[in-house]
Amino acid sequence: MNVSLKRIQAIIVKDYKEFSRNYAISVMILFPLLFAFMYRSDGAEQATMYAFVINFSLAMLTSFVQACLIAEEKERNTLRSLMMTPASMLDVLIGKSALVFIISAAVLALSTYIFGYDTSNMMVLVAAIGISILLYTAVGTICGLYSKTLIEASLSIFPVLIIFTMGPFALVFEEDYPFVKVLRYLPSSQLSELLNALEIGATTNELIMNLVIISIWAIVLTVISFVLYKKRLMDR
């Protein structure tokens, strides 16, 4: 499979222009900043609230924007036109995901600053959020590919938002309802657990398992998004 930086760059530039002129979608960058401002705290619950803000932002910004960008291209047949150019499947997927990754990373960094979250182990925090952005981008790609229209894509994000963002909060019921324990393995629960552990000074080694679980989610969902892309956009 060939990958060309020039082709990826052409797709990123095009997506950036489209994104910046589509106010219905670009307005989503304000939500993480607004939530970070509303929930900023330095009390005992700081890590839990920060995890909520990050998980919510990943679904509402990363997945939502990616799903809308993909669905709009599908709806207008531009994705098929791209496929008829020398752009490979990887060029298109990397190009389309790169813009969302860059925007998400910048907005989440700004949100973290506004929220006032600080940790001594910045490397683990950056790795966890970076892998999560990849994961939620893949979720957005999957939602976008399954949707026939832009409206369908924006609605398809709600189950993601509810399960991934609210999942960690449902763990308070795990003693009464043992099956709820499965939610512990959600990437959002793992991120929340990791942030809480960071707050009490856990070492990098103690956080490896959280990072591995989030990475497995990221790899599996990325592979699914690639396979789905190929299946959905080729008639063969």
């Binding site: 060309s4 052409a10 095009k14 222009k17 207008r76 047949n77 036109s81 008829m84 150019t85």
Partner: peptide
Amino acid sequence: GILTDNSGLYERLTIEENLELFRGLYD
């Protein structure tokens, strides 16, 4: 090259910006 009756164009971009994309893709 291929042109179909439902070939898509990027509505928010100008004619030149659409062609700029294709120029980049074909190098």
